[in-house]
């Protein structure tokens, strides 16, 4: 398979999550992946972009999110870049769901989902204003 790279730039609004999911779905569908794996990747990217909108940009809708998907022989790689405040999802602790219920709050759920569904997560803070999160799913680790 030839490595294929696709990229889009999207404004940081929750109403664009549908656009983000459609983009990932379309590209991933051309990567010869099982539909359940594609659904897991779509959900992971949704969770990561929701965090960018809510945390890196604090729900300011004028921010930019750049989404790059690389479909390679051995893996599918998604890069999510934003220019908001530093937000490192890897440092978010595992949520204690039972405790969340009692405290009537939720948080850290999205990151926990991404960690369960993707094989590798890399976070980089660059140039003092750029967050880059890379999510990788390896083909040989797909059950």
């Amino acid at each position: 398979m030839k490595t294929n790279i696709n990229e889009i730039s999207i404004q940081s609004k929750t109403e664009n999550l549908q656009l983000i999911r459609n983009f990932v779905q379309e590209i991933a569908s051309n990567c010869e992946l099982d539909s359940s794996v594609i659904a897991d990747i779509v959900l992971s990217v949704d969770e990561a972009c929701t965090n960018v909108i809510e945390h890196a940009y604090s729900s300011d809708t004028k921010g930019e999110i750049i989404l790059k998907i690389e479909c390679a022989d051995d893996k599918i790689l998604i890069e999510i870049t934003d220019f908001g405040v530093e937000f490192n999802p890897i440092s978010v602790p595992k949520p204690n769901i039972a405790k969340h219920l009692v405290e009537k709050k939720a948080g850290g759920l999205g990151v926990y989902i991404i960690k369960q569904l993707m094989d590798e997560i890399i976070y980089q803070r660059k140039d003092e204003n750029t967050n880059k999160l890379t999510l990788i799913k390896y083909r040989d680790q797909i059950a």
Binding site: T50, I97, K105
Partner: peptide
């Protein structure tokens, strides 16, 4: 047809009440 953790968060926030 689709749910993300934001949706699950709603059920978590209200069940104890």
């Amino acid at each position: 047809n689709y749910i993300s953790s934001a949706g699950l968060g709603v059920f978590m926030a209200y069940v104890e009440t």
